[in-house]
Design a protein around this nucleic acid. Sequence first.
DNA 1: AAGTGGTCTAGACCACGTA
DNA 2: ACGTGGTCTAGACCACTTG
Lengths: 242, 242
Amino acid sequence: MLTIGNGAVPLYIQIKELLTAKISKGEWSPGSIIPSEIQLAQELGVSQGTVRKAITGLVENNVLTRKQGRGTFVSNHDPDRSLFHFFNITDNKGHKVIPDSRVLHCRRKQASRMEASKLQLAAKTNIIRIERVRKFSATPTMLETITLPESLFSSLGKGGNYNLPNTLYELYEKQYGITIHSADEKLRAVSATMHDATLLNLDVGTPLLEIERVALTLDKTPVELRISRCSTKNHYYQNTCF
Amino acid sequence: MLTIGNGAVPLYIQIKELLTAKISKGEWSPGSIIPSEIQLAQELGVSQGTVRKAITGLVENNVLTRKQGRGTFVSNHDPDRSLFHFFNITDNKGHKVIPDSRVLHCRRKQASRMEASKLQLAAKTNIIRIERVRKFSATPTMLETITLPESLFSSLGKGGNYNLPNTLYELYEKQYGITIHSADEKLRAVSATMHDATLLNLDVGTPLLEIERVALTLDKTPVELRISRCSTKNHYYQNTCF
DNA sequence: AAGTGGTCTAGACCACGTA
DNA sequence: ACGTGGTCTAGACCACTTG
Protein backbone atom coordinates (compact mmCIF):
# COMPACT_ATOMS: atom_id res chain seq x y z
CA MET A 1 0.00 0.00 0.00
CA LEU A 2 2.59 2.53 1.08
CA THR A 3 5.99 3.00 -0.41
CA ILE A 4 8.87 2.65 2.00
CA GLY A 5 12.58 2.96 1.46
CA ASN A 6 15.61 5.21 1.71
CA GLY A 7 15.29 8.75 0.50
CA ALA A 8 11.57 8.12 0.17
CA VAL A 9 8.74 10.50 0.93
CA PRO A 10 7.87 10.30 4.65
CA LEU A 11 4.97 8.02 5.51
CA TYR A 12 2.83 10.77 7.01
CA ILE A 13 3.12 12.79 3.78
CA GLN A 14 2.05 9.79 1.73
CA ILE A 15 -0.91 9.28 4.05
CA LYS A 16 -1.80 12.95 3.79
CA GLU A 17 -1.91 12.65 0.02
CA LEU A 18 -3.86 9.43 0.23
CA LEU A 19 -6.51 11.01 2.45
CA THR A 20 -6.61 14.14 0.29
CA ALA A 21 -7.20 11.98 -2.77
CA LYS A 22 -10.10 10.18 -1.10
CA ILE A 23 -11.76 13.52 -0.42
CA SER A 24 -11.00 14.95 -3.86
CA LYS A 25 -12.48 11.89 -5.53
CA GLY A 26 -15.61 12.22 -3.41
CA GLU A 27 -15.02 8.90 -1.69
CA TRP A 28 -15.45 10.81 1.56
CA SER A 29 -17.89 13.66 1.23
CA PRO A 30 -18.01 17.01 3.06
CA GLY A 31 -19.43 16.79 6.55
CA SER A 32 -19.05 13.02 6.83
CA ILE A 33 -16.94 11.22 9.41
CA ILE A 34 -13.74 9.43 8.41
CA PRO A 35 -12.42 6.24 10.04
CA SER A 36 -10.80 6.64 13.44
CA GLU A 37 -7.06 7.12 13.75
CA ILE A 38 -6.62 3.62 15.14
CA GLN A 39 -8.65 2.10 12.33
CA LEU A 40 -6.67 3.96 9.66
CA ALA A 41 -3.42 2.98 11.34
CA GLN A 42 -4.38 -0.70 11.20
CA GLU A 43 -5.56 -0.51 7.59
CA LEU A 44 -2.38 1.24 6.49
CA GLY A 45 -0.04 -0.79 8.65
CA VAL A 46 1.48 2.18 10.49
CA SER A 47 1.31 3.48 14.04
CA GLN A 48 -1.44 5.75 15.28
CA GLY A 49 1.09 8.55 15.74
CA THR A 50 1.89 8.58 12.05
CA VAL A 51 -1.76 8.74 11.01
CA ARG A 52 -2.22 11.44 13.61
CA LYS A 53 0.57 13.53 12.13
CA ALA A 54 -0.98 13.26 8.67
CA ILE A 55 -4.41 14.26 9.94
CA THR A 56 -2.97 17.16 11.92
CA GLY A 57 -1.58 18.59 8.68
CA LEU A 58 -4.95 18.36 6.97
CA VAL A 59 -6.71 19.95 9.94
CA GLU A 60 -4.32 22.89 9.68
CA ASN A 61 -5.20 23.16 5.97
CA ASN A 62 -8.92 23.27 6.84
CA VAL A 63 -9.46 20.01 4.99
CA LEU A 64 -10.47 18.00 8.05
CA THR A 65 -12.04 18.97 11.36
CA ARG A 66 -11.47 17.09 14.62
CA LYS A 67 -14.11 16.80 17.33
CA GLN A 68 -12.86 15.35 20.57
CA GLY A 69 -14.77 12.28 21.66
CA ARG A 70 -16.63 12.09 18.35
CA GLY A 71 -14.24 11.66 15.48
CA THR A 72 -12.65 13.40 12.49
CA PHE A 73 -14.81 14.91 9.77
CA VAL A 74 -14.37 16.27 6.26
CA SER A 75 -14.75 20.06 6.51
CA ASN A 76 -17.71 21.66 4.82
CA HIS A 77 -19.43 24.98 4.19
CA ASP A 78 -22.28 24.64 6.69
CA PRO A 79 -23.28 28.12 7.84
CA ASP A 80 -22.77 27.43 11.57
CA ARG A 81 -19.56 25.43 11.81
CA SER A 82 -18.48 27.01 8.54
CA LEU A 83 -15.36 25.93 6.72
CA PHE A 84 -14.13 29.53 6.54
CA HIS A 85 -15.54 32.78 5.41
CA PHE A 86 -13.54 33.90 2.39
CA PHE A 87 -15.05 37.23 3.16
CA ASN A 88 -12.57 39.91 4.12
CA ILE A 89 -14.82 42.95 4.01
CA THR A 90 -15.62 44.57 7.34
CA ASP A 91 -17.33 47.77 8.36
CA ASN A 92 -15.27 50.72 9.55
CA LYS A 93 -15.27 49.40 13.11
CA GLY A 94 -13.67 46.14 11.98
CA HIS A 95 -16.82 44.07 12.43
CA LYS A 96 -17.44 41.38 9.86
CA VAL A 97 -21.00 41.77 8.60
CA ILE A 98 -22.45 39.41 6.04
CA PRO A 99 -24.35 41.31 3.36
CA ASP A 100 -27.53 40.16 1.71
CA SER A 101 -27.67 39.86 -2.07
CA ARG A 102 -30.05 40.49 -4.91
CA VAL A 103 -29.44 38.75 -8.22
CA LEU A 104 -29.81 41.08 -11.21
CA HIS A 105 -29.50 38.40 -13.84
CA CYS A 106 -28.08 34.99 -14.55
CA ARG A 107 -27.19 34.35 -18.17
CA ARG A 108 -25.71 31.60 -20.27
CA LYS A 109 -22.91 32.90 -22.51
CA GLN A 110 -19.64 31.91 -24.07
CA ALA A 111 -16.58 32.64 -21.96
CA SER A 112 -14.74 35.85 -22.73
CA ARG A 113 -11.01 35.60 -23.33
CA MET A 114 -10.41 36.73 -19.77
CA GLU A 115 -12.89 34.33 -18.22
CA ALA A 116 -11.57 31.38 -20.21
CA SER A 117 -8.04 32.21 -19.17
CA LYS A 118 -8.77 32.64 -15.46
CA LEU A 119 -10.89 29.47 -15.30
CA GLN A 120 -8.51 27.50 -17.53
CA LEU A 121 -11.21 26.75 -20.08
CA ALA A 122 -10.96 26.44 -23.84
CA ALA A 123 -11.95 29.56 -25.77
CA LYS A 124 -15.68 30.21 -25.97
CA THR A 125 -16.61 27.42 -23.53
CA ASN A 126 -20.17 27.77 -22.25
CA ILE A 127 -20.37 29.59 -18.95
CA ILE A 128 -22.99 30.94 -16.56
CA ARG A 129 -22.64 34.60 -15.67
CA ILE A 130 -24.41 35.94 -12.60
CA GLU A 131 -24.57 39.57 -11.64
CA ARG A 132 -25.72 40.61 -8.20
CA VAL A 133 -25.73 43.54 -5.82
CA ARG A 134 -24.83 43.06 -2.18
CA LYS A 135 -26.16 45.37 0.51
CA PHE A 136 -24.74 46.07 3.94
CA SER A 137 -27.47 47.30 6.29
CA ALA A 138 -29.67 48.31 3.38
CA THR A 139 -26.90 50.22 1.56
CA PRO A 140 -25.88 48.75 -1.80
CA THR A 141 -22.11 48.38 -1.50
CA MET A 142 -20.78 45.65 -3.79
CA LEU A 143 -21.47 44.70 -7.36
CA GLU A 144 -20.45 41.14 -8.15
CA THR A 145 -20.03 39.36 -11.45
CA ILE A 146 -19.69 35.61 -11.00
CA THR A 147 -18.62 33.27 -13.78
CA LEU A 148 -19.04 29.50 -13.58
CA PRO A 149 -18.29 26.76 -16.13
CA GLU A 150 -21.69 25.61 -17.42
CA SER A 151 -20.52 22.01 -17.49
CA LEU A 152 -20.15 21.84 -13.71
CA PHE A 153 -23.23 23.85 -12.74
CA SER A 154 -25.62 23.00 -15.57
CA SER A 155 -28.88 23.32 -13.64
CA LEU A 156 -27.99 26.56 -11.85
CA GLY A 157 -30.46 29.41 -12.33
CA LYS A 158 -32.38 27.51 -15.01
CA GLY A 159 -35.95 28.46 -15.74
CA GLY A 160 -35.51 31.98 -14.49
CA ASN A 161 -34.90 30.81 -10.94
CA TYR A 162 -32.74 33.68 -9.74
CA ASN A 163 -33.59 33.05 -6.14
CA LEU A 164 -30.04 32.03 -5.28
CA PRO A 165 -28.90 31.73 -1.67
CA ASN A 166 -26.64 34.33 -0.15
CA THR A 167 -23.94 31.79 0.60
CA LEU A 168 -23.19 30.39 -2.83
CA TYR A 169 -20.36 28.10 -1.69
CA GLU A 170 -22.83 26.11 0.38
CA LEU A 171 -24.97 25.72 -2.75
CA TYR A 172 -21.99 24.60 -4.83
CA GLU A 173 -21.22 21.96 -2.25
CA LYS A 174 -24.73 20.64 -1.62
CA GLN A 175 -26.13 20.91 -5.11
CA TYR A 176 -23.12 20.28 -7.32
CA GLY A 177 -20.68 18.40 -5.09
CA ILE A 178 -18.05 21.08 -5.52
CA THR A 179 -16.25 22.28 -2.40
CA ILE A 180 -14.32 25.52 -2.58
CA HIS A 181 -11.13 25.11 -0.62
CA SER A 182 -9.01 28.17 -1.35
CA ALA A 183 -9.08 31.37 -3.36
CA ASP A 184 -6.64 33.74 -5.01
CA GLU A 185 -7.59 37.37 -4.81
CA LYS A 186 -6.13 40.29 -6.74
CA LEU A 187 -7.09 43.79 -5.59
CA ARG A 188 -7.03 47.01 -7.56
CA ALA A 189 -8.51 50.48 -7.30
CA VAL A 190 -10.82 51.39 -10.20
CA SER A 191 -13.25 54.14 -11.14
CA ALA A 192 -17.00 53.58 -10.95
CA THR A 193 -18.48 53.26 -14.44
CA MET A 194 -21.95 54.53 -15.25
CA HIS A 195 -23.21 50.99 -14.64
CA ASP A 196 -21.53 50.77 -11.20
CA ALA A 197 -22.68 54.25 -10.30
CA THR A 198 -26.32 53.53 -11.07
CA LEU A 199 -26.47 50.27 -9.17
CA LEU A 200 -24.48 51.42 -6.16
CA ASN A 201 -26.04 54.86 -6.06
CA LEU A 202 -22.71 56.68 -6.42
CA ASP A 203 -21.18 59.27 -8.72
CA VAL A 204 -19.44 58.10 -11.86
CA GLY A 205 -15.70 58.05 -11.21
CA THR A 206 -15.93 57.27 -7.52
CA PRO A 207 -12.96 55.05 -6.57
CA LEU A 208 -13.99 51.44 -6.01
CA LEU A 209 -12.03 48.49 -4.70
CA GLU A 210 -12.06 45.73 -7.29
CA ILE A 211 -11.52 42.20 -6.01
CA GLU A 212 -10.86 39.57 -8.64
CA ARG A 213 -11.20 36.19 -7.02
CA VAL A 214 -10.50 32.77 -8.51
CA ALA A 215 -11.92 30.07 -6.24
CA LEU A 216 -10.27 26.64 -6.28
CA THR A 217 -11.24 23.15 -5.22
CA LEU A 218 -9.01 20.96 -3.08
CA ASP A 219 -7.14 19.71 -6.15
CA LYS A 220 -6.55 23.32 -7.26
CA THR A 221 -9.02 23.29 -10.14
CA PRO A 222 -10.40 26.80 -10.68
CA VAL A 223 -14.20 26.64 -10.62
CA GLU A 224 -15.41 30.17 -10.04
CA LEU A 225 -14.33 33.63 -11.14
CA ARG A 226 -15.82 36.45 -9.11
CA ILE A 227 -15.20 40.10 -9.74
CA SER A 228 -16.46 42.36 -6.98
CA ARG A 229 -16.50 46.13 -7.21
CA CYS A 230 -16.89 47.55 -3.76
CA SER A 231 -17.48 50.97 -2.33
CA THR A 232 -15.02 51.57 0.52
CA LYS A 233 -16.79 54.59 1.92
CA ASN A 234 -18.01 52.70 4.98
CA HIS A 235 -16.12 49.41 4.66
CA TYR A 236 -12.66 48.10 4.00
CA TYR A 237 -10.81 44.92 3.06
CA GLN A 238 -9.06 43.41 6.06
CA ASN A 239 -5.98 41.21 5.87
CA THR A 240 -3.58 40.01 8.52
CA CYS A 241 -0.05 39.08 7.44
CA PHE A 242 2.24 36.74 9.37
CA MET B 1 9.11 25.28 36.73
CA LEU B 2 6.05 24.02 34.88
CA THR B 3 2.56 23.77 36.25
CA ILE B 4 1.02 20.33 36.10
CA GLY B 5 -2.35 19.06 37.17
CA ASN B 6 -5.85 18.22 36.07
CA GLY B 7 -7.63 20.59 33.75
CA ALA B 8 -4.34 22.43 33.37
CA VAL B 9 -2.90 24.00 30.26
CA PRO B 10 -1.02 21.34 28.25
CA LEU B 11 2.72 21.23 28.82
CA TYR B 12 3.61 21.99 25.23
CA ILE B 13 1.49 25.17 25.34
CA GLN B 14 3.24 26.30 28.51
CA ILE B 15 6.61 25.64 26.88
CA LYS B 16 5.52 27.55 23.78
CA GLU B 17 4.69 30.56 25.94
CA LEU B 18 7.92 30.19 27.88
CA LEU B 19 10.00 30.20 24.70
CA THR B 20 7.98 33.08 23.24
CA ALA B 21 8.63 35.09 26.40
CA LYS B 22 12.39 34.49 26.15
CA ILE B 23 12.36 35.88 22.64
CA SER B 24 10.06 38.80 23.47
CA LYS B 25 12.28 39.81 26.38
CA GLY B 26 15.33 39.70 24.13
CA GLU B 27 16.92 36.87 26.09
CA TRP B 28 17.28 35.09 22.75
CA SER B 29 17.86 37.50 19.90
CA PRO B 30 16.87 37.25 16.23
CA GLY B 31 19.16 35.01 14.20
CA SER B 32 20.71 33.29 17.22
CA ILE B 33 20.54 29.60 17.96
CA ILE B 34 18.46 28.24 20.82
CA PRO B 35 19.34 25.19 22.95
CA SER B 36 18.75 21.81 21.33
CA GLU B 37 15.51 19.95 21.86
CA ILE B 38 17.21 17.40 24.09
CA GLN B 39 18.82 20.11 26.19
CA LEU B 40 15.53 21.97 26.63
CA ALA B 41 13.75 18.74 27.51
CA GLN B 42 16.26 18.02 30.26
CA GLU B 43 16.14 21.57 31.63
CA LEU B 44 12.34 21.56 31.70
CA GLY B 45 11.98 17.99 32.89
CA VAL B 46 9.82 16.83 29.99
CA SER B 47 10.33 14.49 27.07
CA GLN B 48 11.91 15.57 23.79
CA GLY B 49 8.60 14.96 22.03
CA THR B 50 6.87 17.59 24.12
CA VAL B 51 9.54 20.22 23.48
CA ARG B 52 9.38 19.27 19.84
CA LYS B 53 5.66 19.88 19.71
CA ALA B 54 6.08 23.31 21.27
CA ILE B 55 8.84 24.26 18.82
CA THR B 56 6.81 22.99 15.86
CA GLY B 57 4.06 25.43 16.77
CA LEU B 58 6.48 28.34 16.87
CA VAL B 59 8.04 27.31 13.57
CA GLU B 60 4.57 27.43 12.00
CA ASN B 61 4.13 30.94 13.42
CA ASN B 62 7.41 32.04 11.83
CA VAL B 63 8.89 32.66 15.27
CA LEU B 64 11.56 29.96 15.03
CA THR B 65 13.35 28.35 12.08
CA ARG B 66 14.68 24.82 12.09
CA LYS B 67 17.78 23.75 10.17
CA GLN B 68 18.35 20.04 10.03
CA GLY B 69 21.73 19.00 11.36
CA ARG B 70 22.42 22.48 12.73
CA GLY B 71 19.80 23.53 15.24
CA THR B 72 16.82 25.81 15.84
CA PHE B 73 17.13 29.57 15.39
CA VAL B 74 15.12 32.66 16.23
CA SER B 75 13.70 33.95 12.94
CA ASN B 76 14.93 37.28 11.65
CA HIS B 77 14.61 39.76 8.79
CA ASP B 78 17.83 38.96 6.95
CA PRO B 79 17.33 39.70 3.25
CA ASP B 80 18.26 36.21 2.04
CA ARG B 81 16.61 33.80 4.45
CA SER B 82 14.05 36.50 5.18
CA LEU B 83 11.46 36.11 7.89
CA PHE B 84 8.67 36.91 5.43
CA HIS B 85 7.95 39.59 2.96
CA PHE B 86 4.92 41.50 4.19
CA PHE B 87 4.81 42.76 0.67
CA ASN B 88 1.76 41.74 -1.27
CA ILE B 89 2.14 43.96 -4.31
CA THR B 90 2.99 42.21 -7.57
CA ASP B 91 3.18 43.30 -11.18
CA ASN B 92 0.39 42.38 -13.58
CA LYS B 93 2.04 39.05 -14.34
CA GLY B 94 1.95 38.08 -10.67
CA HIS B 95 5.69 38.50 -10.13
CA LYS B 96 6.76 39.92 -6.81
CA VAL B 97 9.16 42.78 -7.50
CA ILE B 98 10.74 44.72 -4.67
CA PRO B 99 10.65 48.44 -5.38
CA ASP B 100 13.37 50.90 -4.54
CA SER B 101 12.56 53.90 -2.39
CA ARG B 102 13.42 57.58 -2.11
CA VAL B 103 12.80 59.37 1.16
CA LEU B 104 11.13 62.75 0.71
CA HIS B 105 11.40 63.80 4.32
CA CYS B 106 11.65 62.52 7.86
CA ARG B 107 10.18 64.80 10.48
CA ARG B 108 9.66 64.84 14.22
CA LYS B 109 6.09 65.75 15.13
CA GLN B 110 3.39 65.13 17.66
CA ALA B 111 1.11 62.23 16.86
CA SER B 112 -2.17 63.08 15.19
CA ARG B 113 -5.32 61.70 16.78
CA MET B 114 -5.35 58.92 14.20
CA GLU B 115 -1.69 58.02 14.63
CA ALA B 116 -1.96 57.98 18.43
CA SER B 117 -4.98 55.74 18.22
CA LYS B 118 -3.52 53.25 15.76
CA LEU B 119 -0.20 53.03 17.63
CA GLN B 120 -1.88 53.01 21.05
CA LEU B 121 0.00 56.09 22.19
CA ALA B 122 -1.14 58.92 24.46
CA ALA B 123 -2.35 62.03 22.64
CA LYS B 124 0.38 64.19 21.15
CA THR B 125 3.19 61.70 21.87
CA ASN B 126 6.35 62.47 19.92
CA ILE B 127 6.58 60.53 16.69
CA ILE B 128 8.78 60.31 13.61
CA ARG B 129 6.99 60.71 10.31
CA ILE B 130 8.69 59.52 7.13
CA GLU B 131 7.37 60.07 3.66
CA ARG B 132 8.82 58.20 0.72
CA VAL B 133 8.09 57.30 -2.88
CA ARG B 134 8.63 53.77 -4.10
CA LYS B 135 9.41 53.01 -7.72
CA PHE B 136 8.88 49.81 -9.67
CA SER B 137 11.23 49.64 -12.66
CA ALA B 138 11.74 53.39 -12.59
CA THR B 139 8.02 54.20 -12.40
CA PRO B 140 6.90 55.91 -9.20
CA THR B 141 4.02 53.74 -7.96
CA MET B 142 3.57 54.02 -4.21
CA LEU B 143 3.55 56.91 -1.80
CA GLU B 144 4.21 55.83 1.78
CA THR B 145 3.75 57.69 5.04
CA ILE B 146 5.40 55.86 7.92
CA THR B 147 4.83 56.80 11.55
CA LEU B 148 7.04 55.53 14.37
CA PRO B 149 7.01 56.29 18.10
CA GLU B 150 10.02 58.54 18.72
CA SER B 151 10.75 56.80 22.02
CA LEU B 152 11.58 53.51 20.31
CA PHE B 153 13.46 54.88 17.30
CA SER B 154 15.05 58.01 18.75
CA SER B 155 18.16 58.12 16.56
CA LEU B 156 16.39 57.37 13.28
CA GLY B 157 16.93 59.91 10.51
CA LYS B 158 18.69 62.36 12.86
CA GLY B 159 21.00 64.97 11.43
CA GLY B 160 19.31 64.96 8.07
CA ASN B 161 20.36 61.39 7.37
CA TYR B 162 17.55 60.40 5.08
CA ASN B 163 19.57 57.65 3.50
CA LEU B 164 17.35 54.93 4.90
CA PRO B 165 17.58 51.36 3.62
CA ASN B 166 14.88 49.96 1.38
CA THR B 167 14.07 47.18 3.83
CA LEU B 168 13.14 49.10 6.94
CA TYR B 169 12.21 46.06 9.02
CA GLU B 170 15.79 44.87 8.84
CA LEU B 171 16.86 48.26 10.15
CA TYR B 172 14.33 48.16 12.99
CA GLU B 173 15.69 44.79 14.01
CA LYS B 174 19.41 45.48 13.75
CA GLN B 175 19.45 49.06 14.93
CA TYR B 176 16.62 49.21 17.44
CA GLY B 177 16.14 45.61 18.51
CA ILE B 178 12.54 45.62 17.31
CA THR B 179 11.35 42.65 15.26
CA ILE B 180 8.15 43.00 13.29
CA HIS B 181 6.25 39.76 13.53
CA SER B 182 2.81 40.39 12.05
CA ALA B 183 0.79 43.18 10.48
CA ASP B 184 -2.84 44.16 10.11
CA GLU B 185 -3.74 45.71 6.80
CA LYS B 186 -6.89 47.58 5.85
CA LEU B 187 -7.44 48.32 2.17
CA ARG B 188 -9.59 51.00 0.58
CA ALA B 189 -9.94 52.71 -2.78
CA VAL B 190 -9.27 56.45 -2.68
CA SER B 191 -8.83 59.35 -5.13
CA ALA B 192 -5.40 60.76 -5.82
CA THR B 193 -5.01 64.17 -4.20
CA MET B 194 -2.97 66.91 -5.80
CA HIS B 195 -0.06 65.81 -3.63
CA ASP B 196 -0.37 62.16 -4.73
CA ALA B 197 -0.81 63.17 -8.33
CA THR B 198 2.33 65.28 -8.42
CA LEU B 199 4.56 62.70 -6.80
CA LEU B 200 3.22 59.70 -8.70
CA ASN B 201 2.90 61.55 -11.98
CA LEU B 202 -0.84 60.89 -12.31
CA ASP B 203 -4.00 62.92 -12.77
CA VAL B 204 -5.79 64.22 -9.72
CA GLY B 205 -8.70 61.90 -8.93
CA THR B 206 -7.07 58.74 -10.27
CA PRO B 207 -8.20 55.80 -8.12
CA LEU B 208 -5.46 54.59 -5.78
CA LEU B 209 -5.30 51.57 -3.51
CA GLU B 210 -4.72 52.72 0.04
CA ILE B 211 -3.11 50.21 2.38
CA GLU B 212 -3.17 51.10 6.05
CA ARG B 213 -0.80 48.80 7.86
CA VAL B 214 -0.17 48.49 11.58
CA ALA B 215 2.95 46.39 12.18
CA LEU B 216 3.20 44.45 15.44
CA THR B 217 5.98 42.85 17.46
CA LEU B 218 5.77 39.29 18.76
CA ASP B 219 3.94 40.47 21.89
CA LYS B 220 1.42 42.33 19.71
CA THR B 221 2.65 45.82 20.50
CA PRO B 222 1.97 48.14 17.53
CA VAL B 223 5.23 49.83 16.54
CA GLU B 224 4.71 51.17 13.04
CA LEU B 225 1.85 52.73 11.14
CA ARG B 226 2.32 52.76 7.39
CA ILE B 227 -0.14 54.26 4.95
CA SER B 228 0.64 53.41 1.34
CA ARG B 229 -1.19 54.91 -1.59
CA CYS B 230 -0.56 52.81 -4.61
CA SER B 231 -1.29 53.12 -8.30
CA THR B 232 -2.80 49.86 -9.55
CA LYS B 233 -2.37 50.62 -13.21
CA ASN B 234 0.42 48.07 -13.59
CA HIS B 235 0.33 46.30 -10.24
CA TYR B 236 -2.12 44.71 -7.84
CA TYR B 237 -2.39 43.51 -4.28
CA GLN B 238 -2.27 39.71 -4.10
CA ASN B 239 -3.83 37.64 -1.35
CA THR B 240 -4.51 33.93 -1.06
CA CYS B 241 -7.30 32.79 1.27
CA PHE B 242 -7.54 29.34 2.80
C1' DA C 1 -18.80 1.27 29.38
C1' DA C 2 -16.77 1.88 25.08
C1' DG C 3 -14.80 4.62 21.58
C1' DT C 4 -12.81 8.88 20.04
C1' DG C 5 -9.38 12.44 19.87
C1' DG C 6 -5.54 14.92 23.00
C1' DT C 7 -1.29 14.70 25.71
C1' DC C 8 2.96 12.72 27.05
C1' DT C 9 6.66 9.45 27.34
C1' DA C 10 10.87 6.60 25.98
C1' DG C 11 13.37 4.95 22.69
C1' DA C 12 14.85 3.51 17.91
C1' DC C 13 16.64 4.83 13.62
C1' DC C 14 17.57 8.13 9.71
C1' DA C 15 19.41 12.46 7.26
C1' DC C 16 22.09 16.31 7.54
C1' DG C 17 25.90 19.53 8.86
C1' DT C 18 30.18 20.39 11.23
C1' DA C 19 34.53 19.41 12.80
C1' DA D 1 32.46 10.82 14.99
C1' DC D 2 29.19 13.55 16.98
C1' DG D 3 25.26 16.41 17.62
C1' DT D 4 21.29 18.25 15.46
C1' DG D 5 16.64 17.98 13.75
C1' DG D 6 13.14 14.45 11.23
C1' DT D 7 10.47 10.17 11.25
C1' DC D 8 8.26 6.37 13.37
C1' DT D 9 6.80 3.23 16.94
C1' DA D 10 4.25 1.36 21.14
C1' DG D 11 1.99 2.27 24.86
C1' DA D 12 0.12 4.93 28.91
C1' DC D 13 -3.22 8.02 30.55
C1' DC D 14 -6.70 11.87 30.15
C1' DA D 15 -10.97 14.39 28.38
C1' DC D 16 -14.91 14.26 25.90
C1' DT D 17 -19.14 12.19 23.57
C1' DT D 18 -22.37 8.65 22.82
C1' DG D 19 -25.09 4.70 23.89
